[in-house]
Every structure is written in structure tokens, then in C-alpha cells.
Design a protein around this nucleic acid. Structure first.
Length: 881
RNA sequence: GGGUGCUUAGCUCAGUUGGGAGAGCGCUUGCCUUACAAGCAAGUGGUCGGGGGUUCAAGUCCCUCAGCACCCACCA
């Protein structure tokens, strides 16, 4: 076996991804007697390009999936993409614009066709990127929210809800994006604080007796004013109620009315009422039976209801002109600075306009009750738990959901209007005949449904609903949903409601909410800021394993994390470390001539197995409890600090000095065995390098599993966790470290072997060191060791203490006695302080009476240990003179 | 106005029923030691945001204050 000096991620990753796919290893094991582990992917937008948020989210899902697959459960990860109505249409319209055309130039049918063409050509980009990341989805089950079957499900759902009177059509003020020319749901509006103005405008009384002043932040909407409102209890304005004022610019009379909605403290206490352009004014308008006068068109331009000189002007242009005119006419009393938060379209960032229009709504309250109950009852659990509160709050204050969108790309609303009597029918297909007037001509509603109206069906629509498929029966409820906390309302809550309503089941029992990935400065990664690196570049440079490992290593459960290229180096370096450890094994094992007939475990072998089993136990639990970053920490520590830095180094000693072939074979066996087990533990996080090494080991070591991806996860062997071995090894390790420390103190060349004396505390220790002095010599670069229980300190030597062991390093040359003493004094002070604390506790009756017995026992044990160390140090200080 | 999260080493952050302050990176020193300089070895570094309380014992529980970030509602 010839291995490169540095790990080559690129070739390895392609090779194994293809292998897994060609061998169908992503598909769930066919064993329907076992409970499956299932995840549905949060479907990325077809227009999407992989960003760091996707990397984190999908890596987390893949880790969970790979872990459970190795644990032997039938495991399914259902992938797919979302048609993302507005985003996708915008994307294609942008291309159109380059050709100088708008969607109206080519018409609905042509546009939709063009978007489908675009989807076929470019829509799988993000899927390909997920594959590069290593995602082990069952691609044979990939779905798209506008697949024929899913569209069918959407229609079914719409009709079901309509027939239950849970969908209705109504005229309401909605959030309108004049650029996208569509309604937006409340959740699709992003508010940002802006420095604005508060204009104080005089509205003269019709009878010429003066004026009142209203304050507004959006003067252009005054064109649609139909009244001025004051609070009925406001003494300042009481006398004006019922009078008319002349609406400036429009020059028409409007009444002054009284309504509790008006806040006496704000502005002038007088509010202009514009029912067609403000949600609160809309409510006031209903209460007072006022006209709803629209003064803008769908592009935010002043329409025919405005005065001739303003018609066709953009709303902000119109605002300017109106202010100019008011100033000229001396109707502008003053202008104040005023900060308020302004809604923006979450897709294109245009300022949204509250706008009166016909829209379809879902009544949410009736759907929310069960969705609240399943969370209350713990059937659906949020991780981290704090999100439960957030979810509950929203659910308890839920509002109706505006589901119609005035775009062309999406599921068209299955409502048909009779061409003759305008009667509406909601149906799967165009109705044959109008039941009222028997007309046979219909036109379908022009609007499409909100993208989330298909997403909220995702956990069951992907499994074949409304067909009663075997998959639906078997895989639903799914196991865990892993997604970002920013879509709890938009998606998670709605899936819970939909799945309960249509399948009478919960969609998943656990919702794991991962944090957001931010840049180094703490800003959210976003397209606009351009601060998200392209993960594919990172994968090309460092490897997918490196990226995956680093993202998880860096991301505590449910917290936001900060990304920078440097963190990926952690993963890259770790890959290389593993690679080289394996390379070392291969270099020493090429001549392996069979497995040992009998295994001869020495301390090092027993120790690494003890640790392997401890680590297996912990990592297993971390994966199970979705504590992924803890798992990575544990694995890195074990592989790097224990396997490489101690076990491999100790193996070297045997390779160089041991003659017994059985012992040599045992060492090779343990090196390979621990490595292959470590690869299994690591696989969920670093699937590629673990598979590569696993397969290479398989060539020279008996492994039954076909591949690491479907290998069994290591099973804990508790009898291997030998505490005696662990503590003995700790003594050896400490001794070696202390010797290294001594060498360093007096600058002994690393190339030089030194002679040392070791004074042991008892015969058992003496035996131990006689047996394992080779390890001390190898790992601490020691030549000759003189040891014994009754050893005198050699003249002119420096001393160090490891537990109850004393180590003397004789010096030919000079030593700095004072420096030695200072160091030992420091050690003494620390031990004394520690001992004082322990004595304090043990002499405290309250402690003795209240603390748990095992805590007290532990404390006594510690007292003894510290006292011994202290005595040793004191002895050494004294012997220095 | 309502709510959530965060505040621990120079930086980024772990710390799961209260009982020995940790990691990665950085920094210092010495090493290209035949697996790895993407490395090895030895070190430096913290009154766990302030104050109060509960307890034999608090980074950990409670109260309070401060700073930072975010969410929801409202904003004429």
C-alpha cells in the first residue's frame, strides 16, 4: 500500500459517494418489523445555491441519519426541493428583463413554461451541491413541491379546507409588494427601523373657522382619506366631532369622527383615516361604514382616484409633490423627525404597501387547538426546549393566513368562476356546468397559492398522500425535523397543524432547531451582504469532511455560530492527522503475516481499549441526544491526543525493540482494530475519510461489514473499561510528562538521551516500571534508568515529582538551584491551598452531616492523595538544601 | 410594550440532576525526532458581567442591575 503524504480529500470523496450511490446504500433497509428513523429535508429553493446555513443544517441531518443507519434501524432521509414561487419567478423574470421583456409581454403560459425549462436545466444545482457535501439522502425518493402528485395533494387540501369552511375569500388590507406585484403574508414582511419624518398637516374646517392638524408618516395616502378621527374622550377636539374638514390636495369635504383607536398622546391626537391603505384605518372604516378608496395601483403608482396632476406618479414621487404643494399652500405646519419600523418585502426588500384587495385566507384558529395540545402533551418536543414557548405564543395568538399570491408560478387556486353568473366552485378540475345558471364556461382564479401552502404538507405529501401508501403508513410520523429557528411559524407550526388535520398524526416527534451561521462580525449570512463564502469553494480547498467536522465542532447545540475559513482548518488538519496515523500503521504492517493466534495485551493495549469503550459510550449518547459538537470534541481528543500521541508512540517502542512475533502481531492487531472502530464512531461526521480508511483496513484486517456507511456502530464492552489499567496508565503518563518537563527546563537537546533515577513509592510500582521502562525510555528520550524504592537522591541533580514518585535528573553541568526551588515552592503553595480547602470541608460538621456519603468518601481520598504529593514535594525541597 | 438568548483564558465558545475551572485557535520556548511542520514536545493565560440570596457547598438554582444580540406586537 502506497499512501500519499497528505490526505487527498477530492478524489476520495467522489469515489465513495459514487460507490454508496451505485450500491444503493442510502435506501432504507427493508425490515418493516423495525421502527424506522426518518427525516424529511427542509426543501431548499430550486433557485437556491448552497450557503453556510445549508451546510450546517444538512450536515446535522446527515450525522443523525448516518448514526441511526449504523445503529441498524431502517433509515430514510427524504430529499426534495421547493418551487419557491416568488423567488423563482423573480429569477426568471430577471432573465426576461435582459431581453427587454416583461412577463406581460410573453403571457402566463409562456412564462410558466419558461420557468419549468429553467427548473429542468438549473434546478438541480443545489441537489448536486448537497451530494458534494456528502448528504446520504435516498435520491430515488426525491420530490419537488410542484410534482404532479404533490400538486394533486395541494388541491385536495384546498378543497377539504374550503368545504369545512376553513378557507374563505375576503377583502382585506394585506401587505403588498409593488415590485413583485403580489400579496405577502405577515411572516414574509421584514421590519427595519428607519429614520423617517412625521408631517403635521393642517386640514381646514369646511366652514372656514380654522383647521385641525393631523400627523402622518405617509402623506401620499391622504389622497385616500375619507375621514379624520379623534378620541371621543379627548377634550381638545370634542367640539369638532361631526364637523367636516376640507381634505387638502383633493379639495373635498370629509367628516371628523370619534373612535377609541386614536391615541390621545401621539402626534396631535387627530388621525387621518385611509381605510384602503392602512390596516387600523380599515377597521375604523368598517366600524363607521366609511368608503374604501384605493388611490394606488398594483405598482404603487397613484391611480385614477388621485388628482390628475399626480396620477401615474410613484408613491414616493407623489409624496414629494404633495409636500411641495402643501408647503406652497401653507398647510404644512411642521415636520418632525420620527423613527419607525418600515416593512420590507423579504424577497426584494421593497417597502411594502398596506393595500386593500381580494385574497384567500385559511382560518387558523380551528387548526391550532390540536397543534397546541400535542406540544403541551410532549408528543412533539422542541430541542432546545426554549422554543416551545415561542411556538406556544404564536399558536395562541394565531391569525388567519393569507394564502393567495398574485404571481404565476405556483399552484393555481382551484377556484372556478362561472362566466355568466360569477358563481364560484372549488374543484379538482374545471367544472362541467354551473349549478346555478347551467353555464358551461368558467375561468379559473388567476392567483396561485403561497409557497408554504405546499410546504406544510411536506411530511406526508412526500410519502404519497392522499394515497394510502405503505410508505405513508410506515414512515409517518417521521422522527426528527432539523431546521433553522427562523421558520418555526412559516413552516414547522403549519406542518404540525396540517399533518394532524389530514393524517391525524404528528409529523415528527422532535424538532431540532439549529442556530444561524453568522460571519466573523456576527452578521447573518445573506445574499445582499455577500458575506457568505461559497461552500463548494471550501469543499474544493479543504474537503467536505473538513467542512462538516468544523461546522459541527464550532456549533454548540441550538446556538448561532460564527464562520470563518480558519475554523475549517481544524477539520482539515484533523483529517490529515488521521490519514497520517493510518499511513504510519501501513508502513509498519505491510509485512503482516496473519493475525495473532493469541492476543498478548500489555498495559498500553488494555488502556487504549478501555478508552475506546469509554469514548464509544459517550459518543453514542451524544449522537443519540443530538449533541453533535460534544461528539466531535470527544472523538478528536481520543483519536489525536490518546490514540496518536500515546498509543501509536508506545507501539513504536515495540516495533523497534520487541522480538516476540506474537506481541508484535498483537500490537498491529490493536492498531488496526482501534482505528477501524474509531472510523465507525467518526463516520457520521466525517463519512468520506472514515470510509476510505475503513476500506483500506478491510484489505488487511478481517471486517465483515461491506462498507463503513452500513457497518454496525461499535458496541460497548463494559468489561474492557478497566479502572486499574486507567489509573496505572495515568501514573506512567504523568511520569513521562514530568521527565519531558525536566528536560525542557534545562534545555536538554531533544536529540540527547538522558539518564535518570526514579524513586518509587512501593514494590508494586517498582514492578510496573521494571516492566514498562521501555515506554519511558522511548517517550521521554531516556537512556539508562536507575530505579528503586529506597533510592538516594544523586548529588547535583534536579528533582521533579509525579504523584508519589520522585524523579532525579543528574546533572553534569550547572543547575539553577534557586529556580528549582521557586518552582517547587509554587507547587507546594498550590497543594497546601488545596489541602486547606479539603480540611475545611472535612472539619465542617455541616458538610459531614449533609453531604452525600460518596462525596465525603471522595473528599477523604483526595485528602490522602494531596497530602502524599505535598509530603513528596516538601521532602524534595528539603533535600535541595 | 411582551418575550428569548448571550455575558467563562487574548479570540471563538463548551461546561446536562449544585461537590476537582475546559476545548480549539492565538501566544511563549525548543524541535524538520524515519506517520504527520496541516506536525511534535513543554509552557503562559480566567476574582466564570456587577450585586444580593438559598445551601455544608454556586460558573451551575433564585432575585436584582448592567451590556450585547434577536423574536413578536405596535408605530397616525
Amino acid at each position: 500500500m502506497e499512501l500519499e503524504k497528505n490526505y487527498n480529500a477530492k478524489d476520495t470523496e467522489n469515489k465513495w459517494y459514487n460507490y454508496w450511490q451505485e450500491n444503493g446504500l442510502f435506501a432504507p433497509k427493508e425490515d418493516r418489523s423495525q421502527k424506522p428513523f426518518t427525516i424529511v429535508i427542509p426543501p431548499p429553493n430550486v433557485t437556491g445555491i448552497l450557503h453556510m446555513g445549508h451546510v450546517l443544517n444538512n450536515t446535522l441531518q446527515d450525522v443523525a441519519i448516518r448514526y441511526h443507519r449504523m445503529k441498524g434501524r431502517p433509515t430514510l432521509w427524504i430529499p426534495g426541493t421547493d418551487h419557491a414561487g416568488i423567488a423563482t419567478q423573480n429569477r426568471v423574470e430577471k432573465d426576461l428583463k435582459k431581453e427587454g421583456k416583461s412577463r406581460y409581454d410573453i403571457g402566463r403560459e409562456a412564462l410558466v413554461k419558461r420557468i419549468w425549462d429553467w427548473k429542468k436545466e438549473k434546478g438541480s444545482l443545489i441537489i448536486e451541491q448537497l451530494k458534494q457535501l456528502g448528504c446520504s439522502c435516498d435520491w430515488s425518493r426525491e420530490r419537488f413541491t410542484m410534482d404532479k402528485e404533490l400538486s394533486h395533494a395541494v388541491k385536495k387540501v384546498f378543497i377539504h379546507l374550503y368545504e369545512k369552511d376553513l378557507i374563505y375569500k375576503g377583502k382585506y388590507i394585506i401587505n403588498w409588494c409593488p415590485r413583485c406585484e403580489t400579496a405577502l403574508a405577515n411572516d414574509e414582511v421584514e421590519y427595519t427601523d428607519q429614520k423617517g419624518k412625521l408631517w403635521h398637516i393642517k386640514y381646514p374646517f369646511e366652514d372656514g373657522s380654522g383647521y385641525i392638524v393631523i400627523a402622518t408618516t405617509r402623506p401620499e395616502t391622504m389622497l385616500g382619506d375619507v375621514a379624520v378621527a379623534v378620541n371621543p374622550s379627548d377634550q381638545r377636539h370634542k367640539e369638532y366631532i361631526g364637523k367636516n374638514v376640507i381634505l387638502p390636495v383633493m379639495n373635498k369635504p370629509i367628516p371628523i369622527i370619534a373612535d377609541d383607536y386614536v391615541d390621545k398622546e401621539f402626534g396631535t391626537g387627530c388621525v387621518k383615516i385611509t381605510p384602503a391603505h392602512d390596516p387600523n384605518d380599515f377597521e375604523v372604516g368598517i366600524r363607521h361604514d366609511l368608503k374604501q378608496l384605493l388611490v394606488m395601483d398594483q405598482n404603487g403608482k397613484i391611480n385614477e382616484n388621485g388628482p390628475a396632476h399626480l396620477q401615474g406618479l410613484d408613491r414616493f414621487e407623489a409624496r414629494k409633490k404633495i409636500i411641495e404643494q402643501l408647503t406652497e399652500e401653507n398647510l404644512l405646519e411642521k415636520v418632525e423627525d420620527h423613527d419607525n419600523s418600515v416593512g420590507h418585502c423579504y424577497r426584494c426588500d421593497t417597502v411594502i404597501e398596506p393595500y386593500l384587495s381580494d385574497q384567500w385566507f385559511v382560518r387558523m384558529k380551528p387548526l391550532s387547538h390540536r397543534a397546541i395540545k400535542v406540544v403541551e402533551d410532549g408528543e412533539v418536543r422542541f430541542v432546545p426546549e426554549r422554543w416551545t414557548k415561542v411556538y406556544m405564543h404564536w399558536m395562541n395568538n394565531i391569525r388567519d393566513w393569507c394564502i393567495s399570491r398574485q404571481i404565476w408560478w405556483g399552484h393555481r387556486i382551484p377556484a372556478y368562476y362561472c362566466s355568466n353568473c360569477q358563481g364560484v366552485q372549488v374543484a379538482m378540475d374545471t367544472p362541467a356546468e354551473c349549478p346555478v345558471c347551467h353555464c358551461k364556461e368558467f375561468s379559473q382564479d388567476e392567483d396561485v397559492l403561497d409557497t408554504w401552502f405546499s410546504s406544510w404538507l411536506w411530511p406526508f405529501s412526500t410519502l404519497g398522500w392522499p394515497q394510502k401508501t405503505a410508505d405513508l403508513e410506515y414512515f409517518l410520523p417521521t422522527s426528527v425535523l432539523i431546521t433553522g429557528y427562523d421558520i418555526i411559524y412559516l413552516w414547522v407550526a403549519r406542518m404540525i397543524m396540517a399533518t394532524l388535520e389530514f393524517e391525524n398524526k404528528i409529523p415528527f416527534d422532535t424538532v431540532f432547531l439549529n442556530g444561524l451561521v453568522r460571519d466573523k462580525q456576527g452578521r447573518k449570512m445573506s445574499k445582499q451582504l455577500g458575506n457568505s463564502p461559497d461552500p463548494i469553494d471550501i469543499i474544493d480547498k479543504y474537503g467536505a469532511d473538513a467542512l462538516r467536522f468544523s461546522m459541527i465542532f464550532n456549533t454548540p447545540k441550538g446556538q448561532d455560530s460564527y464562520y470563518s475559513d480558519e475554523i475549517v482548518e481544524i477539520g482539515r488538519n484533523f483529517c490529515n492527522k488521521i490519514w497520517n496515523a493510518f499511513r504510519f500503521i501501513v508502513m509498519n504492517i505491510e509485512n503482516i503475516d496473519g493475525l495473532p493466534g493469541n492476543l498478548h495485551f500489555d498495559l498500553a493495549d488494555k488502556w487504549i481499549y478501555a478508552r475506546l469503550n469509554q469514548v464509544t459510550k459517550e459518543v453514542d449518547e451524544h449522537y443519540k441526544n443530538l449533541r453533535f459538537n460534544d461528539a466531535t470534541q470527544e472523538l478528536m481528543h481520543f483519536i489525536w491526543d490518546e490514540y496518536c500521541s500515546w498509543y501509536v508512540e508506545m507501539a513504536k517502542e515495540k516495533f523497534y525493540n520487541e522480538k516476540d512475533s506474537e506481541i508484535l502481531l498483537t500490537t498491529k492487531y490493536v492498531l488496526l482494530d482501534v482505528m477501524q472502530q474509531a472510523m465507525r464512531l467518526l463516520h457520521p461526521v466525517m463519512p468520506f475519510i472514515s470510509e476510505e480508511i475503513f476500506q483500506l483496513i478491510k484489505q488487511i484486517f478481517p471486517i465483515e461489514d461491506q462498507a463503513c456507511i452500513i457497518a454496525t456502530f461499535p458496541v460497548i464492552q463494559p468489561e474492557m473499561i478497566d479502572n486499574q489499567v486507567l489509573s496505572t496508565m495515568a501514573v506512567l503518563q504523568e511520569t513521562i510528562t514530568v521527565i519531558r518537563n525536566l528536560r525542557k527546563q534545562i534545555n536538554i537537546s531533544p536529540a540527547l538521551n538522558v539518564d535518570i533515577h526514579i524513586k518509587l513509592a512501593n514494590d508494586t510500582q517498582h514492578q510496573l516500571f521494571l516492566e514498562y521502562d521501555g515506554y519511558v525510555k522511548k517517550l521521554a528520550k531516556v537512556g539508562k534508568i536507575t530505579m528503586g524504592v529506597d533510592l538516594e537522591k544523586p548529588a547535583s541533580s534536579i528533582v521533579a515529582v509525579a504523584g508519589d514518585i520522585q524523579i532525579y535528573l543528574p546533572l553534569q553541568g550547572l543547575i539553577d538551584i534557586e529556580a528549582e526551588k521557586t518552582k517547587l515552592e509554587k507547587q507546594k503553595d498550590k497543594l497546601e491551598a488545596e489541602l486547606k480547602v479539603i480540611h475545611g470541608k472535612l472539619s465542617n460538621d455541616n458538610f459531614i452531616n449533609n453531604a452525600k456519603p460518596e462525596v465525603i468518601a471522595k473528599e477523604k481520598e483526595k485528602e490522602e492523595e494531596v497530602a502524599t504529593k505535598l509530603n513528596t514535594v516538601l521532602y524534595v525541597i528539603e533535600s535541595l538544601g
